[in-house]
Amino acid sequence: MTDFTQSYDAPRRNYSQLVLRWLLFSLLGLFALFYLMPLFVMVTTSLKSLEEIRTGSLVALPREVTFDAWRTAWSETCTGVKCEGLKPYFWNSVLMTVPAVFIATLLGAVNGYVIAQWRFKGANLIFSLMLFGCFIPFQVVLLPMARSLGILGLAGSIPGLIFVHVIYGIGFTTLFFRNYYVTIPSELTKAAKVDGAGFFRIFWSIFLPLSLPIVVVTVIWQFTNIWNDFLFGVSFSQAGTQPVTVALNNIVNSTTGVKEYNVDMAAAIIAALPTLLVYVVAGKYFIRGLTAGSVKG
């Protein structure tokens, strides 16, 4: 940490420094406004009636708070032909995200354990190839994946989406766990081997109990990515199995009927709530996950 500021009880803080300090705070405040404004507008708009939206100002607080838009967005608004609101799609996302996160995290943990602690010839090459898979633009696999899902009988289904998210999540989860397990001295594995424990016993009794921090980071990372995904959702789902992001886009960009901005905003907030909640509750781990994937590969 760098401390460039003078101590606060310095007898005479000179004038220019005071001005600088004010400038600093105004700048920080302005940027805070920039980042907060869209959220503020979303929330206030979602609480206004359509009438008030048309006549009032974008940035004004609602004169009369109404939750009608939220109710409509959750259970009444139309996506395409059906008019059941966002609710079924929200549950689709839950049904898709939870198993996909679980499976990818578990596989990543075991893979990372093998690569970090049971080194064998070629393990590094395998790791490099898996890591590489994280960085491909997914457009390059869309076409063959669409056909493969058809062959596997998973086309347009939620299990199909789970499958896709697991496959393209393994690279990152393996990376996370590998980087974590590599910091654990290999003597621990050796000691357990001498104690007579085998591959799975060592994983289960020694490594898994140590893994809570990295499990949290990985789960948050995977959850955020999969919940927020749109490309796979829009490519591999069909009416009825779409995740919430796809449904939200359909609501907002539907061209029929009157444009209900308040419903759009309520729907957007609903779609964003789970990941926002995760961010608020476990922000520290969220940041660690973000930076873990990029700062130290």
Binding site: P38, L39, V41, M42, T45, T224, W227, N228, D229, F230, T245, L248, N249, V252, Y261, D264, M265, A267, A268, I269, A271, A272, T275, L276, V278, Y279, F286
Partner: peptide, 13 residues
């Protein structure tokens, strides 16, 4: 933490 779809929806408005 937001989906780009949410971001797009907000800024579109």
């Amino acid at each position: 933490a937001l989906s780009m779809i949410v971001t797009g929806t907000a800024w579109k408005w």
